[in-house]
Design a protein around this nucleic acid. Structure first.
Lengths: 198, 198
DNA sequence: AATCTCAGCTTACAACTGTACGCTAATTTA
DNA sequence: TAAATTAGCGTACAGTTGTAAGCTGAGATT
């Protein structure tokens, strides 16, 4: 294996190790450089060969999480295209996502209100992207003006993320109930927006 | 001053000191027992005369924050009774609250998704109380059934809290904009719920 | 083949943590 | 007044942290 390949592999080991540590009891600012290094199987000081600090690693993780989020929306659109209600399919896809990528979603959720301004900003940007994509989609499907679509998209994303937070703590049956509640709530928003007069 | 009075005063000093430390860069699990003690003007070991651990202090803080939340709702109701729209007045009251009690709201927001299961549960319970109170209020004012009122209340609280999170990072003019956005979104929910068919 | 580069290591240190132990001084109780 | 209680303190210790300094050995370059 070439030296460059080896380095990339170690870097990926560090990232994976960090995601593993980010379970329900650990936030980004609570995982230490030494812990990550230990989990990645390298010496603490070797960490610096790959990242300037632990914060640089953190921002990398947020980026990866944002990427996963964008893939999520693409997947939902694909599934909607093959039939099924927009709201039902989207919520189902989202719930599957947080089940399969629990730590990724937890990272976003936690750092959104976390102690690092840099992380908060980074997460906020990812969420804004998500809202913008949804806004465009709503304009396209419901042919409403941008202002209204943007308000609707923002409300929907907030409701879904908030429900997702609750779902993280819930077992499977409760998760289904949460999903069905948020579907109703999204319909409230959609209905309300459609008859709203400025 | 009697010994008991003195002890209560010191206890309050500890609580106040802890709230002071809970600024934008510090979470409950990130403030150390030593830091709190230092800020409260006592020796680290004296802390144990008042709380079993730092977690017991944390739960106390969550309780106090929940109390403030309930007072907030009472204040909003009082203001609504003296005239003004329900949604407008509620959002305005809420925004004033997070401006005047930033660290209290931040505590709830942060620990809601934080690393301590005990804190998460405690915060969740406070939010549930809040939703239930709003549910009763909606039933009373709009005479809808419990199921629908509960969904509506939950959606509204989630939207307001989420907007509050964003407002924490924003300056005054942006805060006003956030407030006016969330007002529209609450109207979506209210309108939608009023014409929703199961 | 000789040289350079550099990922990863070991060692080291100062700063911080929670908390065990025992003392003091002042209030409370008997 | 004598005895008991207790809020708060000082000292101490083992464990953790980030990171500085310098070494090694293997891949890359010439």
């Amino acid at each position: 294996m070439s030296r460059q390949e080896q380095k990339l592999k170690t870097r990926q080991n560090i990232i994976n190790a960090a995601f593993t540590l980010l379970d329900e009891n650990r936030s980004l600012s609570a995982v230490s450089l030494r812990e990550v290094s230990r989990a990645a199987g390298i010496a603490p000081t070797s960490f610096y060969r790959h990242f300037k600090d632990i914060d640089e690693l953190g921002l990398t993780l947020v980026d990866e999480a944002g990427l996963a989020l964008r893939q999520l929306m693409r997947q939902a659109r694909r599934r909607i295209a093959t039939g099924g209600g927009v709201i039902d399919t989207s919520v189902d896809t989202f719930m599957e996502f947080i089940t399969a990528n629990t730590n990724v979603f937890r990272l976003l959720l936690r750092e959104h209100t976390g102690t690092s301004a840099a992380y908060r900003t980074a997460v906020l940007r990812e969420i804004q992207h998500f809202i913008e994509e949804l806004t465009d989609y709503i304009i396209e499907r419901q042919s409403v003006d941008h202002q209204l679509a943007s308000l609707q998209a923002e409300a929907m994303v907030r409701l879904v993320f908030s429900a997702g937070a609750e779902a993280l703590e819930a077992d499977v049956p409760l998760r289904k109930a949460i999903g069905s509640r948020v579907k109703s709530q999204l319909r409230f928003v959609q209905l309300g927006a459609s008859i709203y007069k400025g």
